[in-house]
């Protein structure tokens, strides 16, 4: 399989700030690739390096095997759905969507037909005459999507495209985007700071931290086998056990992760270790119980229907040994 995008030791430094630092990355053609990380981790800069709005200070970027170091944004077969949509405020929806063909010199009839086709694709038929200001957030998002797809890009970049939408709309759009990507077969590169979004949508995801990629893998790999304590913490708020505790539980003396949902609370002395319940949080589908084991806080998920212990109670903690994942990184 060809790679849609490859980074070879790509860096983007601003003076002393290393926004992106020696990143190696391959994005497979036709995949839905997510870049996940907290703000300032370098994920958006990576996206802008692909689109050409940023130039690498070192390293090489290839799109479908072609070096694009010398190619300005307007000549890359890559289009972007911007975070705030960046619709042209003075144009109506149709002209916004037809903009790409227009600057490419496509005639009016043809480009308007194309725009209508794209608007139908994002279920906005009949909205062509409206101005962006007259649309809701969700509709603007669709226009931005139609506008970016009209040029038939080989890679579509999405910069936190769902960030401004409310929860319900966001979930609906997640499904739609996924379906759209399947149907069109284009490579989607998706930047988000929302781990649920990344896990539920992506085929592959890269977790960014401080300008570097902490881990690349499929969602289940990243979720179940986090490479570093940072990944464990950031993707799904896993418990991170210090080396001393891991060793005590029978593992190697290294950092380990343990999912809250893998833990069962039992009577004191009946589990692999003992602790004191520090706090309880009711989540609806269950309760999240914080147990202090010495200095370490361990979170456990107690499903609804099961009795949750009270704060201050002494409990035992148990889990399948296979759930304890010893990490390589520090």
């Amino acid at each position: 399989m060809t790679n849609a995008v490859t980074f070879h030791k790509v860096s983007r430094h601003y003076g002393k700030v290393k926004a992106v630092d020696a990143v190696d990355l391959s994005i497979a053609e036709g995949s839905f690739f997510a870049m996940l990380g907290p703000s300032g981790s370098g994920k958006t800069t990576c996206l802008r390096l692909i689109s050409g709005f940023e130039k690498p200070t070192a390293g090489e970027i290839r799109i479908f095997g072609q070096d694009v170091s010398d190619t300005p944004p307007n000549r890359r077969s890559v289009n972007t759905v911007f975070q705030d949509y960046a619709l042209f405020p003075h144009m109506n929806v149709r002209d916004n969507v037809a903009y790409g063909p227009m600057v490419a010199g496509v005639g009016k009839t043809e480009r308007y037909a194309k725009a209508e086709e794209m608007l139908a694709l994002v279920k906005l038929d009949g909205y062509g005459d409206r101005k962006p200001g007259q649309l809701s957030g969700g509709q603007r998002q669709r226009v931005a999507l139609a506008r970016a797809l009209v040029n038939e890009p080989r890679v579509l970049l999405l910069d936190e495209p769902l960030g401004a939408l409310d929860l319900k709309l966001r979930e609906a759009m997640q499904d739609e985007l996924k379906a759209l990507q399947k149907r069109l077969g284009i490579t989607f590169v998706f930047v988000t700071h929302d781990q649920h979004e990344a896990l539920s949508m992506a085929d592959q995801l890269a977790v960014f931290n401080e300008g570097k990629i902490a881990q690349i893998g499929s969602p289940s790999e990243v979720y179940d086998r986090p490479a570093t304590p940072f990944v464990a913490n950031f993707v799904g708020s896993s418990n991170v056990l210090p080396p001393s505790l891991t060793a005590q539980l029978g593992g190697a003396a290294a950092w380990a992760s343990l999912r809250p949902e893998a833990i069962r609370l039992v009577a004191k002395g009946k589990g692999k270790m003992n602790g004191t319940v520090a706090a309880l949080r009711y989540l609806g589908a269950g309760s999240r119980v914080s147990v202090m084991v010495g200095e370490t806080e361990i979170a456990a998920l107690v499903p609804a229907g099961e009795a949750a212990p009270e704060a201050g109670a002494e409990v035992g903690i148990t889990f399948e040994t296979s759930a304890l994942h010893v990490m390589a990184g520090s």
Binding site: I63, F64, G65, Q66, P72, P73, N74, R75, R154
Partner: peptide, 19 residues
């Protein structure tokens, strides 16, 4: 299709220079 679109003349070349 190539991942790089063709150059369309002077305006494109100047834009590239500014970029």
């Amino acid at each position: 299709r190539s991942a790089i679109l063709p150059n369309r003349g002077l305006a494109d070349r100047l834009s590239a220079l500014f970029w």
